[in-house]
Computed example of a mutant assay.
Amino acid sequence: MTPATPQPRWSLQDISFDHIQKERIVQDQDWFYLLAGASFVESLADLYAHNLVAYYDDNPSAQHWLGREWEPEELQHGRALRAYVLAVWPDFDWEAAYAAFERAYRPLCADGLLGPTKALEMAARCVVETGTSSFYGMIQAASPEPVLRDLAARIRADEVHHYKYFYRYFREYQQHERLSRWRLLRELLRRIAEVDQEDSFLAIKAAYETHNRGQTFSRADFDAYRRRMGNWIQRYYPFEMAVKMLLKPMDLPRLLQRAAVPLLTRKARKVLAN
């Protein structure tokens, strides 16, 4: 029997786009590039989802959840962020910028980039959901505009929910694969190193070059942008929560976990804020 398709926890009609206080955010170009870039990445979720659905052809439950819940919710995040960006910056050619991002990023999403085992890919997805839930938690805390805070809170809640599903499926596969903590750690560190690198650069580059015709967005420009974001990260990023989520697949003994969290939190704060 095919599981019922779950109902979304919210819709675009729940977001008060007509009540956005534009004056609080419209002059801040860093917010523009951050939100436009995020809308592009979320809007390409169908590509990620199709790759994962094909990879988990041995697991109808996972395939159903990925295709019927995870993908629609990720695409809704993209539509909601797009609507917010265009409500605040209506002259932005979103479609042209998204097309430029998709052309640059699609070749990087090959099936071969998935994890070498089913459990490792689910653990890697936990890393990605940790990053996205933390990212939207930061936006929620840092936002100067109330409607954006509401939208970010809704997306963050979805990403935490997605993490729980990926973790559940990881545990199912781990019962059979019985990967060592060292093997898991290597995969988690590899995926952590990949998170928020090429996709962020290409998304912001597409937004910048569409918004500023004839100008080029370089790696040096991206590095400068990341340095400006360092202040937000230091003040608003939920470091401790992120570390706990990342460590969960490792299933560490309680005493070791308790000792590791503050040490890794301090390390993460230094790395991410630089």
Results as ranks from 00 to 15, higher is better:
residue 93 D to S: 09
residue 147 V to K: 04
residue 143 S to G: 08
residue 98 Y to R: 13
residue 145 E to Q: 12
residue 253 P to D: 11
residue 5 T to R: 13
residue 108 L to A: 07
residue 117 T to F: 02
residue 118 K to M: 08
residue 174 Q to H: 10
residue 29 Q to M: 12
residue 61 S to V: 02
residue 42 E to Y: 04
residue 140 Q to L: 03
residue 69 E to T: 10
residue 16 S to T: 14
residue 93 D to F: 01
residue 100 A to M: 09
residue 147 V to C: 03
residue 1 M to P: 11
residue 225 Y to F: 12
residue 216 T to R: 12
residue 192 I to M: 07
residue 126 C to V: 01
residue 77 H to V: 01
residue 120 L to Y: 05
residue 251 D to F: 04
residue 108 L to H: 15
residue 37 G to N: 14
residue 246 L to Q: 00
residue 268 A to Q: 07
residue 186 R to M: 04
residue 253 P to W: 05
residue 148 L to Y: 02
residue 63 Q to G: 03
residue 54 A to K: 13
residue 214 G to Y: 10
residue 210 T to V: 10
residue 240 E to T: 11
residue 99 A to L: 13
residue 243 V to S: 02
residue 73 E to P: 00
residue 251 D to M: 09
residue 188 L to N: 01
residue 209 E to D: 14
residue 41 V to P: 05
residue 190 R to V: 06
residue 50 H to Q: 13
residue 163 Y to E: 03
residue 56 Y to I: 03
residue 264 L to I: 05
residue 3 P to E: 02
residue 64 H to R: 11
residue 30 D to T: 10
residue 83 A to D: 13
residue 46 D to Q: 14
residue 263 L to R: 12
residue 120 L to T: 04
residue 216 T to H: 13
residue 46 D to W: 05
residue 65 W to K: 02
residue 147 V to L: 00
residue 14 D to R: 02
residue 137 G to C: 01
residue 87 A to Q: 10
residue 218 S to W: 07
residue 135 F to G: 00
residue 4 A to W: 09
residue 70 W to K: 08
residue 151 L to Y: 05
residue 180 S to K: 08
residue 47 L to S: 13
residue 20 I to R: 00
residue 162 H to M: 09
residue 48 Y to R: 12
residue 63 Q to C: 05
residue 173 Y to G: 02
residue 35 L to S: 07
residue 121 E to D: 10
residue 265 T to N: 15
residue 198 E to S: 15
residue 212 N to G: 11
residue 227 R to H: 12
residue 180 S to G: 15
residue 202 L to G: 06
residue 224 A to H: 15
residue 142 A to E: 08
residue 140 Q to V: 01
residue 241 M to V: 08
residue 156 R to D: 00
residue 265 T to D: 13
residue 259 A to Y: 09
